[in-house]
């Protein structure tokens, strides 16, 4: 294990908004994925989300589908 004794500063030769955005892109994508999983975690029980997204997941989507006997449903 190599320990660092000081912050690892990087010198960017050409400071433009595009190059900064480019350097952050992989991290932003990963944080976006993390955010999507966070949203999925907390909306797991909401019917609109269940019907729109989770019930359509291949193989395991059946977990979010509700199949009552039509006789037992009122109206």
């Amino acid at each position: 294990m190599i320990y660092s004794t000081k912050p690892a500063y990087k010198i960017i030769s050409n400071i433009s908004k595009l190059s900064v955005l480019k350097s952050y892109t992989p991290d932003l994508i990963l944080w976006g994925g993390a955010g999507l999983f966070a949203v999925a975690t907390f909306t797991d029980g909401i019917p609109k989300f269940k019907d729109t997204f989770y019930s359509k997941i291949p193989y395991v989507g059946d977990h979010w589908q509700y199949h009552p006997d039509p006789e037992d449903v009122s109206n």
């Binding site: 991290d27 990963l30 944080w31 994925g33 993390a34 999983f37 966070a38 999925a40 975690t41 797991d44 395991v60 977990h63 979010w64």
Partner: peptide, 19 residues
């Protein structure tokens, strides 16, 4: 190594585990 992948793994694991 990255906090973003760590947080994503935690939430993905939570989503899969609760189902």
């Amino acid at each position: 190594k990255r906090n973003s992948t760590f947080v994503a793994t935690v939430f993905a694991g939570t989503f899969i585990f609760q189902a």
